[in-house]
Simulated scan of single mutants.
Amino acid sequence: MNIKKLITLTTNFFLLLTLQACGSFNTAQMVSPSVPVYEEPSYETAQCQQMTIRDTRTIRFTYQAAQEETLSYSESNVRYSAFFVSPGAVVQQGELLCELDLEDYPDLLLASEDTLADLEDNLSLLDERLSLSLKRQRIEGTGLTYRERQNAENAVYVRYSQEKTELEDQIHILQERITQYQDMIQKRQIYAPFDGTITYVYTPDAEDFSKSGKDIITVTNASQMLFTAKTEYCSYFQPGVDYTLTVNGEDKIASVVSSDDVGGTVALSLKTPDYTLEDGASGTIELSLEEKEHVLAIPKKALSTINGTSVVYVPGNDGFKTYREVETGIENLTYVEIISGLKEGDEVLLPD
């Protein structure tokens, strides 16, 4: 061995020992040279498989408040008497719903109507009675002079006129009285303003008295409880067909009332009225435009376009991706039908 090399190796050996003893050499600082390792690229994939695809559209409907009227009494400080309906009752226009204490007004009204009928009968017979009185006067006055007969007949006319005036006055007074009784009774009764359903009834305490304008009963016309939508798919909605309408997370059955292709408006009516709905509430229907069974399909997000041609990327033999042209059919929010370009079981690459 060369003497110079031996001396050099010996010197380096002792220098290394000296550095370790002094703690100034850190073995962690010795880094091995890195060697690049080849890794094949990895992709998330999905299979082309058979399934049923429904092409649907979400149609949003808006609730229009039904015809509704809340009724109240115009009389105050009168005791409540009777309620003839309860919430949910179906009523007809003009039906009596409830009333306050009518006191003796019905009896007074009935007696006045009976008296009025008698007076009107008397008035209708008055002309006949006048004719009979004149005939009797002429028979009894055969021995009287002409002037005496005239005076006697004039007296008959005067009595007739006075009696007629009295009857007409009594009839007029009774008619006004009857109107007053009817008004008093009407103020203490509530009738249905239209055909509908009772949605609210006030429950008074035992010692409660009426207050003018206080809400007592609400009537709703359920036939006008409609959901409407403006949509280009009016032709798919046929009158009389039922759909599932989702409102506030709850499914309800609604029937198509009308579908206007020209105006683009569809109207639905709930099969079972929901009186808790507020004006402007919204509901949705998943409208099926087309449905195919046993078709090949892939996730829609796997589909790409190159120069207007639909393509999918598939794993290549060399580990890298390549693309393949495909022909597509119907689709929904998640999947698209593959008519050609792939077969069942083929893998397609999904985007990162």
Rank of each mutant, 00 (worst) to 15 (best):
N154K: 12
D183Y: 04
L96T: 10
D127M: 12
L333E: 02
T142E: 14
R188A: 02
T322W: 04
Q50V: 05
M51E: 15
A254C: 15
D215Y: 00
Y105R: 00
L333D: 02
A155Y: 14
Y335L: 14
T228I: 08
A281P: 04
E153G: 05
G280K: 13
T52Y: 04
V85K: 13
S255E: 14
K252D: 02
Y38F: 15
D118G: 13
I7D: 10
E120F: 01
G263T: 03
G23Y: 03
L270S: 09
L270F: 13
K187P: 02
D279N: 14
L125V: 04
N221P: 00
K252C: 09
Q92R: 11
V348H: 02
T11V: 15
I298S: 01
L96R: 08
V31Q: 04
Q29C: 00
G264T: 01
T309M: 05
Q29M: 00
S255Q: 14
D169Q: 15
T334D: 09
Q93T: 03
I339G: 07
S72Y: 09
I306H: 13
L15V: 10
V311A: 09
T56V: 07
T58S: 14
L144P: 01
Q67S: 00
N248H: 07
A229K: 01
N77M: 12
T18A: 09
E153D: 08
R138A: 13
G329T: 12
E168S: 12
Y236L: 15
N77F: 10
I298V: 11
D195M: 05
L19N: 01
D318R: 15
T52L: 08
F83N: 08
D195T: 11
D279K: 03
E128T: 15
L132K: 14
L289Y: 05
T305I: 06
L108I: 07
S212M: 10
Q64M: 04
G341W: 06
S269I: 15
D352R: 04
D101R: 00
Q238R: 11
